[in-house]
């Protein structure tokens, strides 16, 4: 779990370096997974999530498709797909507006991988879901409302 920290400590002026990394937000205390975008996943609202992803206010695009059922009987398992015909898509994210944390998942697509991913998400209640894609460095978005008859986030 703490392999990275050990390595850092061994590499010379360990303590000072670790302090610098922590200050820079590269290593957050209690979290060994440095790559995971904690700020984006912890953000509560849509706006905060978009900000944490560096997306600002993305433009709506007809070239982004978000697929899913109109009505989901079971909010614990809602199939959602994102597809887009925009060029050079490097990132796809799925956001659920009314979940406790809006961001569900992000996908980084290297060249050669098609902008077409499907997964399954939990929804606490009826909500708009947003598909965010990054094409040629710009962000675009599409939305769809899914009605949930039984929430998937409660007890």
């Amino acid at each position: 779990m703490n392999n990275q920290r050990r390595t850092v400590l061994k590499s010379g002026s360990g303590a000072a370096l670790l302090g610098m990394l922590a200050a820079a937000g590269i290593i957050t205390p209690g979290m060994a997974l440095a790559d995971w975008n904690k700020a984006a996943f912890d953000a509560k609202s849509m706006a905060d999530t978009l900000k944490a992803l560096g997306a600002g206010s993305p433009a709506d695009s007809k070239d982004v498709q978000v697929t899913g059922p109109d009505i989901a009987e079971n909010g614990a398992v809602v199939p959602v797909g994102v597809a887009s015909s925009l060029p050079n898509i490097s990132m796809v994210a799925i956001l659920i507006e009314k979940n406790p944390n809006a961001l569900a998942a992000t996908f980084v697509l290297p060249e050669g991988t098609e902008a077409n991913v499907q997964t399954r998400v939990k929804m606490g209640q009826t909500s708009n879901i947003y598909a965010l894609v990054k094409s040629d460095g710009k962000f675009f978005m599409a939305t769809k409302e899914i009605k949930v008859t039984l929430g998937g986030c409660g007890g």
């Binding site: 290297p110 399954r120 998400v121």
Partner: peptide, 19 residues
Amino acid sequence: VLSSEFGPSVSKNPYLAFK
């Protein structure tokens, strides 16, 4: 070919499809 980050709102026993 794909690197993804999940939050807790991905369903139990996650399913993923891509090309």
